[in-house]
Design a binder for these strands. Structure first.
Lengths: 154, 154
DNA sequence: CTAATTACTTTGCTTCTCAAAATATTTTCT
DNA sequence: AGAAAATATTTTGAGAAGCAAAGTAATTAG
């Protein structure tokens, strides 16, 4: 018989695969089907207020160079507006266009639906359990990340 | 104040980014640093018994062609053994080499540690709650996937 | 025993990624 | 002020990962 650790592990791995597949498929079938999942996640990271390249790149964990090529395409497709910062002209400000914000909101609502389905029939206390489990998992990652930064140990 | 739906959503999105980053960093610093995350996940999908190409490709949601190139590299690096099936020579059987199994177990133990950190202080009932939440989320995805397959609706 | 099916590989192409070099702007330090 | 350092971004070169479609090999069906 499988322990709950193993069950949860398998569920997480499968969920991980599922989430990407579903998001990709949903995107392909939406009116924003000229966006890849990666591009959608860039829009998601930018959010609804102007941001800098370094800032967004850090959030989604890619190099600024990688983000540049991604933004090039998103500007050409008219999802993103790019302009130099007024105050300090070294900075580039990227923000969502009207179309970009629309795509953002559609994706956002997909996420909301997904999470609502998850917590739907849970009581308030059960929700607490879920949130705390997720927070604990994130805490684990932060610690792990710090350890790895300091010294190798897988 | 943020509702629990939004909190969980944000936690999941951040966890998603974290998981890949940590796995990648941990791998880079391990003795199996000639493996990419994608390759590690192929090893993970193959598991400890021989499998066919189509089978594994389906599990990790890539085309068989994509898997072929991945397996080519893994065979060259000696993590995977590839041979024609005895019974039906159309099939290819892929299985982990000794080195492949070692890498598999190291990654597996990383996953175990991760999940243990997550469920550590949970009671038996809380474990149930977590498992049920995850299952519910997966159920939602399966349904969503089916709907999209049938007809477009993001 | 040909035709269809099944399982896989190859090919051509795009996207995503990084590291390192290049460019532009601002800040710091004589 | 003017050279040097620092900061923010873009460009370049190259590899990894993905797909669709064409090609190959083996088996099954008619």
């Amino acid at each position: 018989m499988k322990g709950s650790v193993q069950v949860i592990n398998e569920l997480l791995v499968e969920l991980f695969n599922d989430i990407l597949t579903i998001e990709k498929t949903a995107l392909q079938n939406s009116k924003f089907n000229d966006l890849s999942i990666t591009e959608m996640h860039v829009l998601e990271a930018i959010g609804l207020t102007p941001r800098t390249m370094t800032d967004v790149a850090g959030q989604i964990r890619v190099t600024v160079g990688t983000l540049t090529t991604s933004i090039n395409r998103l500007v050409k497709k008219e999802y993103v507006i790019r302009k130099r910062s007024e105050g300090d002209r070294r900075f580039v400000e990227i923000e969502l266009s009207h179309k970009g914000k629309l795509a953002y909101r559609v994706h956002e609502s997909f996420h909301q639906t997904m999470v609502k389905a998850m917590v739907d029939k849970l009581s308030g206390e059960d929700n607490e359990v879920l949130i705390n489990s997720l927070k604990r998992l994130m805490q684990f990652f932060k610690e792990q990340y710090r350890l790895i930064e300091e010294k190798s140990n897988m």
